[in-house]
Design a protein around this nucleic acid. Structure first.
Lengths: 256, 256
DNA sequence: CGACGTTTTGATTTGGATCAACGCCCGTGG
DNA sequence: CCACGGGCGTTGATCCAAATCAAAACGTCG
């Protein structure tokens, strides 16, 4: 391994505000607005793979901007099954879907070396008060994620195992690429096949079999913790993937 | 059929702003704010069951506040399959998840006599500019729906047919009850079993069989277009349903 | 090296899909 | 008023994709 490979660069780590970076990947954000967002990320802490950011049942007053690494939000039901509700990548606000509630049923666990910036939910109030544009952008991001969620729900509930894994690979790659445009065709995936199974709703056994199938088809390749997108077309035949970060129209947003 | 049954009352129909009504079911909204929301609903139009509100591929510059009735957002993929992405009830903003995009891949179809209030996406800008509180409330609603979506994704992708239908019934009832607290234990469901199958990801044949199973269990009952929740407990054993409109903590919202 | 976690491979089982037929209800038109 | 037809729901028989159970191969780290 000589030289720095783009999949190992975490652009967020060094920049002032990871959130500002994500939002400005969508629409221009001026320095005053970036400042408002950076104020959310003043505190920072590091956690390693396997470490629990917060346990299930935790009060939701804190949110976490993810600066580096992967986290998962998982739910353990009564009968000992685990389900991975969401996979978090740099730029995400971990815990955002639990903003309206007093406690969260989800547990957040790091899946790689990660840096998060905790901030109290109340800090968002400043953003809403000071910047209509950022308010609208936050809603926009929520809607983009909602659209992706709809895609997952649609594919995961009905389609074949091939479709599920194809969508997983494509969505993950698309999201990572937003924050790291140096990524070419491969990304580091710190999830085990059991994890992936709990994301898409199938057993690890079948994840393994299906990955090999996709590999034989020439749709993607695996080298240990990396996944390489080989043939977008072939994957899309299964998943009918839409990149929800493309074809955006944000011209209607309030001015800066 | 003597007298007015609560499941036939549509409280939204008469009120000034259906959206204000929904938001104020969550947190207090003053009259100025209600006015801002009412401005979104000035225009109104009626459509009947089966009528298409907008076809797939339509530009997304318009949004629709649903005042009365049910609509579905459906997606037809290349191979002739239909998937119902979302079911809309009074108070919803139809098309909201497509706000960031130029066109929507979804088609919106009425499933009952319905009244919608179209407004241009740009009108939201006024709300963002004038009211931090409403901005935050809109995000809150988005997050509540996101949480419900997570629940569906989790149950629909893995669990049994019983779990799927149980969750469908409970979520639907919970949502309807928010806007119509006269509802006791039954609701009018204008969807066919084929529709329901396309919502939860199973065939109409299996929807039929599974409903009869749930009925035998004493969990719910069907009388033609009505569904009656008989035993919440029994349903929850299958679905592990959480009412996402309960246990809210909105104390952090910006003041009015 | 041994041990544990992960991935792979094989054999068997199963829940839901699929295919097909039938009954029911309701609206339409003769 | 009844005959017909079409949409919807039910029921039965068969099939298949993925789950489950089990064991072996692989990798990595103490």
């Amino acid at each position: 391994m000589s030289g720095i490979r783009p999949e190992n660069i975490e652009p967020c780590e060094t920049s002032d505000s990871c959130l500002a970076e994500k939002l400005s990947a969508l629409a221009p954000v001026d320095s005053r607005q970036a400042g408002l967002l950076a104020a959310l990320e003043e505190e920072r802490c590091e956690i390693g793979p396997g470490e629990v950011l917060y346990p299930a049942g935790e009060p939701t007053e804190k949110l976490y901007v993810l600066k580096k690494g992967w986290l998962v939000s998982e739910l353990h039901d009564g009968s000992g099954n685990r389900s991975i509700v969401r996979v978090h990548h740099p730029g995400d606000i971990v815990g955002d879907s639990q903003i309206p509630y007093t406690v969260t049923p989800y547990r957040a666990v790091a899946r790689s070396e990660a840096i998060v910036c905790p901030f109290p939910r109340e800090n968002l109030v400043e953003v809403f008060k000071r910047s209509p544009r950022l308010s609208a952008l936050l809603l926009t991001v929520a809607m983009i994620e909602s659209a992706e969620q709809e895609d997952r729900a649609r594919v995961f509930r009905r389609n074949s195992a091939m479709a599920k894994l194809a969508l997983f690979a494509q969505q993950t790659f698309g999201r990572l690429k937003l924050m790291n445009n140096l990524l070419h065709d491969r990304f580091h995936c710190p999830l085990t096949q059991t994890d992936i199974g709990d994301v898409v709703g199938m057993t690890s056994v079948h994840v393994s079999r299906t990955f090999t199938k996709l590999e034989k088809e020439g749709a993607l390749k695996r080298h240990s913790p990396f996944i390489q997108i080989v043939d977008e077309e072939k994957l899309s035949v299964h998943s009918s993937y839409l990149n929800r970060y493309n074809e955006l129209d944000l011209s209607w947003l309030p001015e800066a």
